[in-house]
Design a protein around this nucleic acid. Structure first.
Length: 447
RNA sequence: GGUCCCAUCGUCCAGAGGCCAAGGACACAGCCCUUUCAAGGCUGCGACGCGGGUUCGAAUCCCGCUGGGACCGCCA
């Protein structure tokens, strides 16, 4: 615990929150919460052409969806604001003038350029990667021996990333700069600026990249990259959080399914991995399934409902007639069948309506005559509950030479669900109730 | 091309010189349960990139090679 820890997530509002950004935000959040420190959201909107307020909003709601709450930010305020770079222009200007007057920077047209000197040791200790050795002579221009100076103020008056990030991290008292590994090569340039301003450098902790299946940095062409696409596919925030936390980190034990708070408690920056990690859908699916299983019935129902609605099922009607609990119990019966909320919704649609069942099965492949006898017996049972029904069915089957449970259970399953897979069919029957089952079987002429 | 980083099963992680003939999870295959599997149980397949050192002993330390990645914008 170190309550003085201050970390930040600093996205540029030029698109929705994507997986990589979410990963970075998540690790910052974990470190802040683990230490009881502060997590700050700073909007880096110095790219006038691409930044929009809409994206800023989208990023914030994406973080909220993931469960990453921040302590200071453009919407919340705080003692170190403003938290939007476009509102800090005077500050950047002030320090640029200082650098200018000390001869550490020079003007080039409207821009202000920071001078890079030869022979500077700009190595640093990274909390994750360890010692990283760099000399300023390495900062050459492409295909040339010329040292590359750093633009700090653009011709349009806006600060550049490498400059603004230094000013802000210092002024906002950031103790740990946690960001993607793609920033390692920017760090030495930033260190040069810290030094020129006479400031101490914060700790740096770079995170391994997230790669697509082709082992290339995750990008749009790998398919779903926006956090919201995962929500729409039926992944839960808890699962995406859990999955992302496992990319580049583990508590060291075998525990892989955990809550946000458990992760925050166990998290250690020093345990972060260095190797880039491949985004694996199979693992995400598994984690989502596990979280789906652990949900309490009502929360689970609320997760599934939108997907039933999406499929055009009369959820509200059923809720009115049979109650919310009844629907929640139907999902409890599913016992972990389905990896995403969408799958679970698809696999359980027959509880909500008979219509999809009709579309899937037409009873043309069964011997109705033979089945009618069986179903008549079933519906003659005084108690329409799973154990009783099953016993009756078994007794009936065993009394017949060569008869198999399967020959009767499967048609029942098809008539009730339209699927070849479902929870125990007598449980399904009990839950649907005598009346509804009767209706479905009669529709197929099986009763 | 330059700079930097990385290197354990197909994938995600464990491993911080002897406890490792390398462990867990996902995926995959098979078996079992059974009215079905997309649920549950069990088993199996499967990796320390290569070559040199250091050491009594190396997946763990060092060097080289190879392979992969990131960055080299008045984008962030």
């Amino acid at each position: 615990m170190n309550r003085n820890i201050r970390v930040r997530f600093a996205p540029s509002p030029t698109g929705a929150l994507h997986i990589g950004g979410g990963h970075t935000a998540l690790f910052n959040w974990l470190w802040a919460r683990h230490n009881g420190g502060k997590f700050i959201l700073r909007i880096e909107d110095t790219d006038l052409a691409r930044s929009t307020k809409e994206y800023e909003q989208t990023i914030m709601s994406g973080m909220t969806w993931l469960g990453l709450d921040w302590d200071e930010g453009p919407d919340k305020g705080g003692d170190y604001g403003p938290y939007r770079q476009s509102e800090r222009l005077d500050i950047y200007r002030e320090y640029a003038e200082k650098l200018l007057s000390e001869g550490k920077a020079y003007r080039d047209g409207e821009a202000i350029i920071f001078r890079v000197e030869h022979g500077q040791d700009i190595s640093f200790d990274d909390t994750v990667y360890g010692r990283i050795d760099v000399m300023s002579d390495g900062l050459k221009e492409k295909d040339s021996d010329k040292l590359k100076d750093i633009v700090i103020i653009k011709s349009d008056g806006m600060p550049t990333y490498n400059y603004a990030v230094v000013i802000d991290d210092h002024l906002m008292n950031i103790t740990d700069v946690i960001r993607g590994e793609d920033h390692i090569s920017n760090t030495p340039k930033q260190i040069l600026i810290y030094r020129a301003l006479g400031w101490d450098v914060p700790k740096f902790a770079h995170l391994p990249m997230i790669l697509g299946r082709d082992k290339k940095k995750l990008s749009k062409r790998h398919g779903a990259t926006s956090i919201y696409e995962y929500r729409d596919m039926g992944y839960m925030p808890d699962s995406v959080f859990n999955f992302l936390a496992l990319l580049g980190w583990s508590a060291g034990d075998d525990k892989e399914i955990f809550t946000r708070n458990e992760a925050a408690e166990l998290f250690e920056l020093s345990r972060v991995t260095r190797r880039p990690a491949v985004f694996d859908f199979d693992k995400l699916n598994y984690i989502n399934q596990e979280h789906l299983k652990r949900l309490d019935p009502m929360t689970r129902l609320n997760m599934i409902k939108p997907f039933w609605l999406e499929a055009g099922l009369p959820v509200d009607e059923v809720e009115k007639s049979r109650g919310e609990n009844w629907l929640a119990e139907a999902l409890t019966l599913m016992e972990g069948r389905g990896r995403t909320a969408k799958e679970m919704a698809d696999f359980s649609d027959y509880f909500v309506s008979f219509e999809p069942v009709k579309k899937r099965w037409d009873a043309s492949d069964v011997d109705k005559e033979k089945l009618r006898e069986f179903f008549t017996m079933i519906f003659a049972q005084p108690v329409f509950k799973a154990p009783e029904l099953e016993i009756a069915a078994r007794d009936w089957v065993s009394a017949r030479e060569g008869a198999k449970m399967k020959e009767y259970a499967m048609p029942l399953r098809f008539a009730l669900t339209g699927m070849k897979v479902s929870p125990g069919i007598f449980e399904v029957a009990e839950h649907l109730g005598r009346e509804e089952c009767e209706k479905r079987l009669k529709f197929y002429g099986l009763l």
